[in-house]
């Protein structure tokens, strides 16, 4: 697949050590890419450099093979900033008209396009209201509509759902998935890991201005070779008894007051799960639940954070 966003040793240095450093990444066509990282990691700096708001210090960045920030590259992108405000003295339709003109959307079909994006983001009924009467969530939807109005092949969305209610978040997720299916590429900067898990193809973890890990979401979330088993009738010496009977590698995760315990089995093969169940049954325990343990993006995120971040540095990290 074609590389849509490509950076090589991209650096934006603010002169005080902050910014982003030596960033090399590739986002392919039709992907939803999630940029993750703690506050002050440099995520917004990276996005702003890619869309031309910040001038790079060194390195290379290309959007569809065009130098990032150039007029040609900017024709290819739609951008929703993290800290945004739209002209509150205009109506939603007028804001979109302004952005459509700035993006050189052809006059013919411009109004139809505006109506279409207003419908896509769920603002068609409020299209002729002044933006000053909009809630934060509605303004975020308007921002998304502005990013979409020129029908760009690449979208940079900085925290696109942070102000939305659960219903609207769901709608935006569906919209992004539809856009991906249409072949568009989405560069997503967000803290909402559950959204990333559902819609992103690949992610990168940025901290202290550098990429510390990246990979496909599928690989990160792949099932581990562990199983959780919820059993009833638990006693103090139950673990030793079951281990002795089954010979399996077991550990207790939690024990509840009602006599239930969650056990974790490290197993290379499903047969070992069957063997554990057989032994539990034979020893008189109740088996309530058996399920494979999946890695979660949140635990991956926390793992990466622990690797790079020292608690004493937290207060010094610049707020984005």
């Amino acid at each position: 697949m074609t590389a849509v966003v490509e950076t090589k040793s991209l650096t934006k240095d603010f002169g005080d050590g902050l910014g982003c450093h030596d960033i090399s990444l590739t986002v392919k066509q039709g992907e939803i890419f999630g940029l993750l990282g703690p506050n002050g990691a440099g995520k917004s700096t990276l996005v702003k450099t890619l869309v031309g708001l910040l001038q790079k210090t060194s390195g290379e960045a290309h959007i569809l093979g065009l130098p990032a920030g150039s007029l040609e590259a900017r024709r290819m992108i739609g951008y929703l900033p993290e800290l945004f405000r739209y002209q509150d003295w205009l109506t939603a339709r007028e804001v979109l008209r302004l952005h459509a003109r700035l993006s050189q959307v052809p006059t013919q079909g411009r109004e139809a396009r505006i109506t279409s994006v207003l419908t896509q983001v769920g603002l068609s009924r409020r299209a002729d209201e002044r933006v000053r009467h909009f809630s934060k969530g509605m303004q975020q939807k308007l921002g998304l509509a502005c990013a979409l109005v020129s029908d760009p092949p690449v979208l940079f969305l900085d925290e696109p759902v942070s102000a939305l209610d659960p219903g609207a978040r769901h709608d935006v997720r569906q919209l992004l998935l539809r856009l991906r299916d249409e072949g568009k590429t989405v560069f997503l900067n967000t803290h909402l890991l559950e959204d990333v898990e559902v819609i992103c193809n690949s992610v990168a973890f940025l901290a202290d201005g550098s990429i510390h890990a990246n990979g496909s979401v599928k690989d990160i979330l792949r099932p581990m070779t562990s199983w959780d088993v919820l059993v009833g009738g638990w006693l103090v010496d139950s673990l030793a008894e079951i281990k002795a009977a089954s010979g399996l590698a077991l550990e207790v995760v939690t024990v509840a007051e009602d006599g239930t315990a969650r056990l974790r089995l490290s197993a290379e093969h499903r047969d070992e799960v069957g063997w554990l169940n057989h032994n539990l049954d034979r020893l008189g325990y109740f088996i309530y639940e058996v399920c494979p343990v999946h890695n979660r993006l949140e635990s991956w995120f926390l793992e990466q954070s622990e690797r790079v971040q020292e608690p004493s540095n937290l207060d010094e990290v610049r707020e984005e």
């Binding site: 031309g52 708001l53 900017r74 951008y79 900033p81 945004f84 952005h99 700035l102 940079f156």
Partner: peptide, 14 residues
């Protein structure tokens, strides 16, 4: 400061 230009400047206009 208000973020208005953040949405305008990435548009293809010098």
């Amino acid at each position: 400061e208000s973020g208005l230009l953040l949405a305008i400047l990435p548009r293809p206009i010098p």
